[in-house]
Amino acid sequence: MALFMDAHTIEGGVSVGDVATAHEADLATQGGHGVSYLRYWVDEAAGKIFCLVEAPDAEAAHAVHREAHGLVADEIYAVTEGR
């Protein structure tokens, strides 16, 4: 499995509560795609959301968002965890 960080931009801002609800939908959907959403970060005022996910590939991670709630990422990057 590879590690990915995706980035979303929601015009007009976003609430942490709404992102938490979307994350729960991701968790409920991820198993069918072999994906594991791990963490997320939110900048409410800027409307930025970042999700860390283990997935076989970027498309599988994208498919979970699309199926779970339709809020697909604007960008997705393969990342390596550092210390």
Rank of each mutant, 00 (worst) to 15 (best):
I10Q: 00
K48E: 13
V72L: 04
D18I: 11
H23R: 14
A58N: 01
W41A: 00
E24P: 08
T21H: 14
V42G: 10
A78W: 03
A28R: 11
A55Q: 04
A20D: 13
F4P: 03
H62D: 14
G17F: 01
A68K: 03
A68D: 11
G70E: 06
A7P: 01
T80C: 08
V79Q: 09
A46D: 12
V53K: 14
R83I: 12
D57Y: 03
E11W: 01
I10D: 09
G82L: 10
V14F: 07
G34R: 09
H65D: 15
K48Y: 06
H23A: 15
L71P: 10
D6A: 11
E44N: 10
G34Y: 03
G12T: 09
M1C: 12
G31N: 13
I76M: 11
D57M: 03
V42K: 02
R39S: 13
M5Q: 00
S36W: 06
A22T: 11
I49S: 02
T80K: 13
A20I: 04
V35R: 13
S15H: 04
E24L: 14
G12S: 01
V16A: 08
A55W: 14
E54L: 05
E54K: 00
K48T: 02
L52H: 07
L71C: 11
R39K: 13
E44W: 09
D18S: 10
L27S: 10
E54C: 11
S15N: 01
G32D: 09
V79H: 01
E75T: 12
A55T: 07
E59P: 06
A60G: 09
M5S: 09
A20H: 10
E75R: 14
G34L: 07
A7C: 02
A45M: 12
M1P: 09
A61M: 00
A22I: 01
E11Q: 11
Y77A: 05
L52Q: 04
D26M: 08
A7F: 05
D6R: 09
A25W: 06
D43L: 11
V35T: 15
G70I: 07
A63Q: 07
R83S: 15
C51Q: 03
E24M: 10
G82M: 12
H65W: 12
H8W: 05
A78D: 12
E54V: 04
E81D: 04
K48M: 04
T21C: 14
T29P: 02
F50L: 14
S36M: 05
R83C: 15
E81M: 06
G82E: 14
A78Y: 00
A7N: 11
W41L: 10
Q30E: 07
D43V: 10
E11P: 05
G82R: 02
M1W: 14
T29V: 07
V14I: 13
D6K: 02
V14S: 11
A2I: 09
L38W: 08
A25K: 01
D74M: 05
A22R: 06
H62F: 02
H8P: 01
G47H: 10
V19Y: 06
T9R: 03
G12C: 00
D74N: 14
G47M: 07
G47E: 01
A73N: 06
H33F: 15
L3H: 00
G17Q: 03
D26C: 05
L27F: 03
L27P: 06
S15E: 00
R66D: 08
A63P: 03
A2M: 07
V79Y: 01
